[in-house]
């Protein structure tokens, strides 16, 4: 049992030494990669009949610009988010739990298609997760 445990710990800690002082923004690949993720995300939304309903009246170019800003700021890039608060944007939309999680799945697809590694995807999601309270069921 102990042998199994130490093997498991060895596997788990294998990525541990990869921690670097650079920001998540830099590790992702900077502005170019974030723009690619956002473009992919917009495509994913356009092709999803359910989620597109929430966006059909949105100004796509403004959404793109503000989301790039926001992802840059959230991941430690040198940007300032100048859009409306998450709470303000989503109030009245009554986003269900299914639709929220479905949109997370679309963002995951967008990152996967932008060749963002699985650990980096998780760290991006961890940065965004606290916003759920201001988005969901407002």
């Amino acid at each position: 049992m102990l042998r199994h445990l130490s093997l498991l710990l060895a596997i788990l800690s294998f990525g541990g030494c990869a921690s670097t002082p650079t920001t998540l923004y830099d590790q992702l690949g900077g502005q170019e990669k974030i723009a690619l993720i956002v473009d992919n995300f917009i495509k994913e939304i356009e092709f999803d009949a359910v989620i597109f309903q929430h966006f059909k009246d949105s100004d796509v170019s403004r959404f793109r610009e503000k989301l790039i800003e926001q992802l840059c700021a959230e991941t430690g890039g040198n940007c300032q988010y100048t859009g409306d608060s998450m709470e303000k944007v989503h109030t009245g939309m009554k986003i269900s739990e299914s639709d929220f999680n479905r949109t997370v799945d679309l963002l995951i697809n967008a990152m996967t298609k932008a060749d963002v590694s699985y650990p980096l995807q998780n760290r991006v999601l961890a940065k965004l997760a606290p916003m759920r309270a201001d988005i969901y069921q407002r």
Partner: peptide, 10 residues
């Protein structure tokens, strides 16, 4: 679940 808590792994 802790997202990305273990060197990026959940």
């Amino acid at each position: 679940v802790h997202l990305g808590a273990l060197a990026g792994y959940n």
